[in-house]
């Protein structure tokens, strides 16, 4: 499937994140010989958090349909334990920004993010959420990227991305959590 890609080194790049793993700013370096118990506990917690990402049912436009397709039977993100989509932001862990964020929606998105309990993660799905996409230049009302409003952990490009691409983004997020590199984890210093 990588037959025409000119910028991936191997035929099958490792799963989880588009190569941003090394040298990510703020990466926690392991201390040799110290903190065994704590780091083991952290591993358990990170394992639990990464395997229990409950998404918020939040979709603004087209990408929402592909998000529904991921929930659907063919792609089925329940295999990873993501299927407990919560309508209330209090109980959700990950907010998948599926669709365009316009200026009027911006404060609402910020509020939703604020209402979520820590730790919380954000996936920007599709061109609109990453950068405004097709609405980058010619419109007056679209936020040029959701990361102007809330911090984003994983970006997945596409318009809309395939369901597999969203699954890839979710797996990337899992990897990121397991490595302790999300904004939440760095902020709280674990």
């Amino acid at each position: 499937m990588n037959n025409a890609s000119n910028n991936s080194e191997s035929a099958n790049p490792p799963l989880g994140g588009g190569g941003a793993a090394e040298g990510f700013p703020g990466e926690i370096q392991e201390v040799p010989g110290g903190g065994i118990v704590l780091s083991k506990l952290d591993d358990v917690i990170n394992w639990a958090r990464s395997n229990s990402l409950w998404p918020l049912t939040f979709a603004t436009s087209c990408c929402g349909i592909e998000y529904m397709a991921v929930a659907g039977a063919k792609y089925d993100f329940s295999r990873f334990g993501f299927e407990v989509a919560r309508a209330s932001p209090r109980q959700a862990d990950v907010i998948i920004i599926a669709g365009t964020i316009v200026n009027k929606m911006g404060p609402v998105l910020k509020r939703l993010y604020d209402q979520m309990g820590d730790p919380k993660y954000v996936i920007a799905m599709g061109a609109c959420a990453i950068s405004g996409g097709p609405f980058f230049y010619n419109t007056y009302s679209v936020v040029k990227g959701a990361d102007h409003i809330i911090p984003v952990d994983v970006y997945v490009a596409g318009c809309p991305p395939r369901p597999e691409a969203l699954l890839h983004a979710l797996i990337s997020l899992q990897e990121k959590i397991k490595k302790g590199m999300t904004r939440e984890q760095i902020k709280s210093g674990i």
Partner: peptide, 17 residues
């Protein structure tokens, strides 16, 4: 997938209330 609900439980335990 037997550990799925265990993961959920640990996650909920350490999630901000």
């Amino acid at each position: 997938g037997l550990l799925q609900s265990a993961a959920d439980t640990v996650k909920l335990l350490v999630k901000e209330g």
